[in-house]
Design a protein around this nucleic acid. Sequence first.
DNA 1: CGAACAATTGAATCCTTTCAAAGGGAGTGG
DNA 2: CCACTCCCTTTGAAAGGATTCAATTGTTCG
Lengths: 201, 201
Amino acid sequence: MSYGLAELPDQKPAEADQAPVAFRKNEIIFHQGDMALYWFEVAEGVVRTCHFRVDGNRQLTGFFFPGDVFGIEGNQYLATAQTVTSAKLMRHHSLSHPPQPDHLERALASAQQCIALFGHRTAHERLAAFILSIARKPTTNGCVPLPMSRADIADHLGLTIHTVSRTMTDIVNRGIVAADGLHRLRIIDQDQLARLAGETE
Amino acid sequence: MSYGLAELPDQKPAEADQAPVAFRKNEIIFHQGDMALYWFEVAEGVVRTCHFRVDGNRQLTGFFFPGDVFGIEGNQYLATAQTVTSAKLMRHHSLSHPPQPDHLERALASAQQCIALFGHRTAHERLAAFILSIARKPTTNGCVPLPMSRADIADHLGLTIHTVSRTMTDIVNRGIVAADGLHRLRIIDQDQLARLAGETE
DNA sequence: CGAACAATTGAATCCTTTCAAAGGGAGTGG
DNA sequence: CCACTCCCTTTGAAAGGATTCAATTGTTCG
């Protein structure tokens, strides 16, 4: 089934490939099933891709931060893309401005990271790995932004919001990270976090 | 760390890209960390890719059947590739014979399928989805080949061999599939299997 | 300020893992 | 060809962890 391409605000075909396109928070960029006419590069803000399953559950197949690339897909989009925050995106025609090897590698890295998350078994491992993966984004300096909801994190890690909440509380209580409101963390003990994520020994 | 490219039997540089290369069972095709000089296409047999983690656990990031493509990676291989059965592989130079869009789509489909598996939460859902994914390979007619070990399946689905074994026994006892030895299944109730996998209703 | 939604927390249940042991197949050597 | 061994698989029982159900607290936004 196909939904037709989502509306793109400030549509200016002539310079669409040069100027970033602005999106509001929680706005849909494209729908699962749409023809993959464009691929995107995040200039500002955060984007998520959701795959909706027939049983009603959704799976978040990725979060995309500034510099990340998404929407590079063969024929039609396999997931719906939405903004997590207000965002500015570079939009490129798939045919007239196909992604360069550099972009493909970035897209590949995102997919590999998603797969790698599931190499982690327990809630602690997955959440720790998730936090570290965001902390390593080039834009992040000191603080770890978590603009997405707990439900988003849960659907990304294959857990429930309850488990995410409990696990988050636990690693805060253990002094591994510090919560700066709901949507920002500071990493206190990097080594311990890496150990939780199963990265060291 | 890099291991150097695995030995390639019957190496004939001149026609290497035309003739399939033969591998024995459980032979290593390339190592995680090697320079990604070649990409491969399965002509006969089955291949698995394993990502080894620092904690000693391994994650099987894919099984590749005839017609499937693997080893298309940016700079160096992110996982080790091994044969599950004896196999014949078409080996292509990454630079002189880069993959065509058709191949990229097949590789992408494999990655997406791996990610999709983890949208399934329970052992029953994952195993059912896994069996269905193999049953839908073009080569499969009626019977579902499971040439890989239970450990391979477990490491692919993020379960233990015990859970895989128990779950397999259960869906056999419930008459959803029939076991024809350890490494072959027949699907008895396709609808029920799809329901288990969360594909319908 | 109030309402609606999001997040946290508690208690009980269910499922998977872990620990332990037995059963079965494939391959080797006698 | 059979017996033996090794390894993979299956199965049992107990423990641990995540989910579910339920309720409270906290946050955001009109």
